[in-house]
C-alpha cells in the first residue's frame, strides 16, 4: 500500500472531522460575538459609584 493512496477509513472519518471542525469554528464565533455584544453594551463597565470611589 502506497502512502499516497487514501484509505477508506480516512474517507469515512472526513465527515466526523469536518463536523468537529465546524463545531469549533461555531464556538469561536459565538464567544467572539458574545464578547462584542457584552462590551459594546457596557456590561463590563464598573458601576458609577465604584468609579467615583
Amino acid at each position: 500500500m502506497s502512502f499516497g493512496q487514501q484509505h477508506e477509513i480516512h474517507k469515512r472519518r472526513f465527515g466526523r472531522n469536518l463536523g468537529v471542525g465546524l463545531v469549533l469554528v461555531a464556538v469561536i464565533a459565538i464567544v467572539f460575538g458574545l464578547t462584542v455584544v457584552k462590551v459594546t453594551r457596557g456590561d463590563y463597565e464598573a458601576p458609577r459609584s465604584e468609579v467615583q470611589n
Binding site: M1, H7, I9, R13, G15, L18, G19
Partner: peptide, 21 residues
C-alpha cells in the same frame, strides 16, 4: 490482508451524526 482487518475493526466507528443523535 491488513486492509481487511482494519476495515473490520472500524466498520462500526461512530460518525458525527451518532454523536449528534
Amino acid at each position: 490482508t491488513d486492509t481487511s482487518i482494519d476495515n473490520h475493526a472500524y466498520e462500526n466507528e461512530a460518525q458525527f451524526g451518532d454523536y449528534f443523535a
